[in-house]
């Protein structure tokens, strides 16, 4: 009869950390990419890029919203009447088509055709990361958060010795704690 092997807590932790890591790998990468993208929302739109085309036409002063729309369709050779029309002033006109708009200053004879496009892949990653889907995705995201919690808590205890928590690990963990604490302290002092 073979001798019973002793229970090894650290081995179990390593095995669990490895398998949870495999499961979480895709979302860790996806959320990290999306995180960088939305961190810089003040500088760009992380979900859309806007295709802009400037056009000119002979200036005119429309007597009505309907006339403004009809003249712009003709002068800019637009594909038929717009779905909606809005004037913010008698000469500032906006035409709304399905998924794109035309903003025209009829007094200046200047128009901007604008088409928003979802950013390739990034739009979908943000959709997941920012939980736009709500519903069932909230539960998946909660499970992912629990997986991250486990990875974060188990990570420091995977190794023994000089590379473990008792060795240089404690200094790296401390650095990881101190950097955000420093920012929080500065926030309170500032």
């Amino acid at each position: 009869m073979a001798a019973r092997r002793p229970f090894r807590f650290r081995k179990l932790l390593r095995d669990l950390h490895r398998d949870v890591g495999y499961l979480a790998a895709f979302l860790v990468v996806a959320y990290a990419i999306s995180g960088i993208a939305v961190n810089h929302v003040a500088d760009w739109n992380p979900n859309y890029r806007f295709e802009v085309e400037e056009r000119t036409f002979p200036p005119f002063t429309p007597a009505s919203r309907e006339e403004a729309a009809a003249r712009l369709v003709e002068l800019l050779d637009l594909p038929g009447p717009p779905r909606e029309v809005f004037r913010s002033t008698p000469t500032d006109v906006r035409l709304f088509y399905e998924g794109w708009t035309v903003t025209a200053d009829t007094a200046a004879g200047h128009a901007v055709v604008e088409r928003p496009h979802e950013r390739f892949v990034l739009y979908d990653l943000n959709w997941l990361h920012l939980n736009k889907g709500k519903g069932a995705w909230t539960w998946v995201a909660d499970l992912f958060a629990l997986a991250l919690l486990f990875l974060g808590l188990s990570g420091p205890f995977l190794l023994k010795g000089k590379h473990g928590l008792a060795g240089r690990g404690k200094w790296l963990v401390l650095a990881g704690v101190l950097v955000p604490l420093l920012f929080l302290a500065l926030r309170r002092l500032g």
Partner: peptide
């Protein structure tokens, strides 16, 4: 709330 670009129009 985050309003997407598609809401325009």
């Amino acid at each position: 709330m985050v309003f997407p670009a598609e809401v325009v129009g």
